[in-house]
Amino acid sequence: MDYPIDEKIYQEFRKNFNATNVFECEREYVELYNLGYALLDRMEKCAGYVNAHTMPPKSEEEFILLMVYGSMVVDATKLVLQLLKVENPYTQDAQITYSYFADICEENSLILSDGKIPTDDKVWEYLRSLSFAHPFKTSRPKFLEKDEIQYSPTVTPNVNPIFLPLNAESTVDIMIYSTAFPDIKHLNIPYARIIGYISSRYQLLSLGTEKLKQIIEKKKQEWKKQKIQISATPIDTLKSADAIMKSRHEDTRLCELIPLLEVQSTLEENRLQIRAYQSKIESAISQIVTFVESLDTDGLNNYLEQILQVTKPKYSGADYQIQKIFSGLNQYADEGEQMFGLKQADAFYKDCGYKWVKIDVSQMGNEEIKLLVRIACEQEAQNKK
């Protein structure tokens, strides 16, 4: 069955919207980002309701809910296109702008002062005001007489007027009181037209998806021109790579490698082990450069995970010790967490680390302690093989 709200359209929009952090982080897209997530969070429910109510409604309440969810779809899509500066194909002069309600306007004399028929968008706004009775009177449409005010006391869904053929479309009947004429007027709108209109405006979201793709591709072309400054010092090379990834609004673990290279051995006993570990990191820099300059963020993140992975010893309590060492010995931890991290580092040293390195928490800084813990864990794992 073909549904009026094709869920693949908003799912594709979501996929591209989440494909980069640009929309979240860059100032020019902040409003789009907020609206986009509001749209995506609501769209699933809106789509579900509209798709479940393609048949004429059985009650006024059911119809009004259809108009509510339909309005969310129509309005949100319209605003997304505006923020993305996408040209709407339903312009005043386009023939498709009069696809759903033109004949109804002619039959009911809903004509503008210049003799033209109002667009589908204008008729939709008129129907919405009448059906919601909000703000309880309708005086905005330009096809009404001067100072005319209309009221709609009731909406009757699923009507087959007696003067229409038996196979005629089921309509929604909107009763109208007007200050411009004494009689009650009935506006009959085929329900299928209303559904069709909602669907046609929702499908414009695919234009928004194409614009997202264009923005992302333009960014990628800019990023491909970025080159890491290969320095004589590995630390500066990594800092350049990290700065580039931050300019792309990508969170990576590059910044964790830099302090590992900056550590100087406090004790002579650890100097060779520390230098060997740092050399291993330095040998990985050329591959890191390749990942960054080829825009392979997933490849970079997987590679960094391998480099920074800590293989925890098998003895009881090791997992807890390692967790508290790395969570406590960082710049964001409070004093209590710092002290507990040092306590666990000392315990780790006595349980396992003493076999491979020398750790003295009273003399060493946090980064050196964490590096020595890494080295000890690596040596322990290799020894168990």
Score class of each variant (00 low, 15 high):
R14L: 08
V159G: 05
S113T: 08
M43E: 06
G196F: 09
Q214L: 09
Q214M: 05
T209F: 08
D242V: 05
D120N: 01
L257N: 08
E26Y: 13
V310M: 05
V86Y: 07
T97A: 07
I288E: 05
Y191H: 01
Y98W: 09
R201P: 06
L267Q: 10
T91H: 06
Q338D: 03
I194M: 04
Y3N: 11
E125V: 08
Y151N: 05
Q221G: 03
K220T: 07
P141D: 11
Q278H: 05
I96N: 09
I230E: 08
A133F: 15
Y90S: 13
V50T: 04
D2C: 15
R201L: 07
Q273Y: 11
S265L: 08
Q226L: 09
M364V: 01
I359L: 02
K45Q: 12
D147T: 11
I104F: 00
E169R: 07
V310R: 00
A345C: 01
F348T: 01
K15G: 12
N366D: 14
E7F: 12
P118R: 05
Q221K: 00
G196E: 04
Q214N: 06
L35E: 00
V80E: 04
Y90R: 10
Q82L: 05
K15A: 15
K213T: 04
R27L: 15
T20M: 07
C46R: 08
V123W: 13
N88P: 14
L166Y: 00
S109V: 00
G317T: 03
I322M: 09
I244T: 03
T266K: 11
S327K: 11
E7R: 14
S113R: 08
G336Y: 14
P165F: 01
I111C: 01
I195R: 03
D319Y: 11
D93C: 10
N383G: 03
H249W: 14
S206T: 12
L40E: 00
P234H: 03
F340H: 12
K213H: 01
L127Y: 10
T233Q: 06
A243L: 06
V123Q: 07
I359A: 00
I149Y: 13
Y69V: 03
E31D: 12
E125G: 13
R128F: 13
I216H: 00
S152T: 02
K211P: 04
K355H: 02
H53I: 03
G341S: 13
E335G: 05
A52T: 07
S59T: 10
E107W: 02
E106Y: 02
P135S: 04
I258R: 01
E87L: 14
Y100Q: 00
